[in-house]
């Protein structure tokens, strides 16, 4: 556990040395603060648009941070050849993957907290009412970002950076559409197609589960039960992604 912790701390330190993280977070804060663009709208419309935009910005920039952070956490060690030194020490490849992920968890937690605090501060400043739904939506966005990070990290253990960026982005888009895809496939009578679609539906991450922000902004109450189940789904997916990452990293020749 200590080895994983040391690796995680190093990953966090490494991330703060890079300018990319700061630039992404800065862009996100600028986007959230740009709510003044909506000043021409009525207060009710403004409220919805500020909240919508902020949630979307936090999620999208969180996705970028998770994807690029996870990719560079693994690939920079390989490129700089520091991984040889690491793996000759009594650090297993499993320790390496778990340590990197734990490090990513803290990086994302810090950056997400900055964006979330800024957003909540903006709502407070604009005197826009907040309820538990706002915090539930933020929490599920964070869980979604963690799932994205686990997938990107897992892919980083056995693919090139370019392929990883394309695959992670593709999974991100598809992950938001699997529900619709299943509805469409549900209309077909072909059992083989249906079975294949069901399999894909289970294997691909369903990011739509985490997307409650569209409901929160229009005042639909989100029960805690839903938040807990979706969090369980997220944790389960992270475990699966990390296991796959560990498997491929252990088979990889470095």
């Amino acid at each position: 556990m200590k080895k994983i912790w040391i690796l995680a701390c190093n990953t966090v330190k490494e991330s703060f040395r890079k300018k990319t993280t700061y630039i992404i977070v800065l862009f996100a804060l600028i986007m959230i603060a740009s709510s003044e663009f909506f000043a021409f709208l009525s207060s009710t419309e403004q409220y919805k648009m500020i909240t919508d935009t902020s949630f979307a910005v936090i999620e999208f920039f969180g996705f970028l941070l998770a994807m690029f952070g996870s990719i560079s956490a693994v690939s920079s060690e390989i490129e700089k050849r520091t991984i040889y030194t690491l793996l000759t020490k009594p650090i297993t490849r499993t320790n390496f993957v778990l340590g990197k992920y734990l490090g990513m968890f803290f990086i994302l937690l810090i950056n997400f907290s900055i964006m979330a605090v800024f957003f909540v501060g903006l709502l407070h400043f604009k005197k826009i009412p907040m309820d538990s739904g706002t915090f539930k939506a933020l929490f599920l966005i964070f869980v979604e970002i963690l799932v994205i990070a686990s997938i990107s990290l897992s892919l980083a253990t056995f693919t090139s950076d370019a392929f990883n960026i394309i695959a992670s982005s593709f999974i991100y888009i598809i992950g938001h559409l699997t529900g619709y895809g299943r509805q469409i496939i549900g209309m077909t009578k072909n059992i083989a197609v249906k079975g294949l679609a069901d399999m894909m539906y289970t294997i691909l991450p369903n990011y739509q589960n985490f997307t409650i922000r569209d409901k929160v902004v229009v005042g639909i109450p989100i029960p805690w039960q839903y938040v807990i189940i979706v969090t369980g789904y997220g944790i389960m997916y992270i475990v699966i992604a990390l296991l796959i990452g560990i498997y491929f990293f252990r088979t990889r020749e470095i």
Partner: peptide, 11 residues
Amino acid sequence: VLAGFKGIAAD
């Protein structure tokens, strides 16, 4: 919409 931002699309 494709990227999952239905709220923004509606806005």
